Simulated scan of single mutants.
Amino acid sequence: MGLRERKKALKRQEIVTVAMNLFDQKGFDKVTVAEIAKQAGIAPKTLFTYFKSKDDIMFHNETILLSDIRHLIQQQTSIANLWPAFHQFTEELPTNEATQGSLQAMRQLMANVIRNPELGSRRLQMWATYETQIQAALIEQRLTDSLTAQVLAHQMILVLQIMFAEEVPDDFWQARVTRIFNATSQVASLTNEVDMTL
């Protein structure tokens, strides 16, 4: 990374730090872009070269967990292995050194969303991006066809949405993940037993 890129990355992080402090102090809806820019020592117009909106500042690290999931997919050689691998991946998020940072970032983001209901639609947009990117990764890895990739990506995101819908302490994380995956299997079994001719 060149000097210019490093300076830009540092300024971006400064904007995030300033904004997050202001959000904590005053509440997300009470903070203006102009206020963030002023404290970061830049013009509002300059701030928009780093972030398109105030929402984007709050969601600045929204894809950090997505990167880990894409890496998991790239390691798979068979679609049959993916669901168990994803189960293990999700279960080990708090204990795996490689994913602890991602988990903490996502927990902080979701806690902020819970405190600021106006960010709900932005959260849905984030999960939609996750689903699209996971589907693309499955197809790129040639693990399955487009339709199966779409269904599987949706199931994976559903697990994450449930896990991050509330704050789950590390002590209860593994048990919660196990319950969700068991419930998913039970629903699939119940669906298979339904007489579709009725």
Rank of each mutant, 00 (worst) to 15 (best):
F28L: 00
L93R: 00
M163W: 07
H154F: 08
R6G: 11
F86D: 05
D55Y: 11
E91Q: 13
A19L: 07
F59K: 01
I162F: 14
E91T: 12
F51R: 04
Q104F: 07
V33W: 04
V168N: 05
S102R: 09
A37S: 07
V151C: 06
L72Y: 04
A34T: 10
R12A: 13
M1H: 10
N116D: 11
S121V: 10
M20A: 06
D56F: 02
I162K: 11
Y130R: 01
P169Q: 10
D29E: 15
T132Y: 00
T77V: 09
F28E: 01
A80P: 06
Q150D: 15
L22T: 02
A105D: 01
I162T: 14
V159A: 09
M58V: 12
L160K: 05
D55C: 10
Q75T: 12
H154P: 01
I79A: 03
G27W: 03
E92F: 07
I139E: 08
R107N: 11
E5G: 03
N96L: 08
P94W: 02
N81A: 06
L143N: 09
W127R: 07
L147E: 13
I79L: 00
R12V: 00
Q141N: 15
G2D: 07
V159E: 05
Q155G: 12
P169M: 11
N96A: 00
H87T: 03
F89P: 02
L152D: 05
R70G: 08
N116Q: 05
I15T: 01
A85T: 02
R70S: 05
M20H: 14
V151H: 07
L22N: 01
E91Y: 11
A80F: 06
Q76P: 05
I36V: 02
T77C: 07
D29N: 15
L190A: 14
A128H: 12
A188C: 15
T90Y: 08
G120R: 02
L109H: 00
L109S: 06
H71Y: 05
H71C: 10
I134L: 03
A188S: 15
V177F: 01
V151W: 08
F181Q: 01
K38G: 11
Q108K: 08
V33F: 03
P117V: 01
A98Q: 13
V194D: 10
F28R: 07
E167G: 14
A37N: 08
D171E: 13
T32M: 09
L22W: 02
Q150R: 13
F28C: 10
G41A: 02
A34S: 15
E131Q: 13
I42Q: 10
A188R: 15
H87A: 08
A183P: 05
M20V: 07
P84Y: 00
Q39C: 04
E167I: 14
A137V: 08
S67N: 14
M1L: 06
Q104H: 04
A183T: 14
A128T: 15
N116V: 00
S102V: 02
E167C: 14
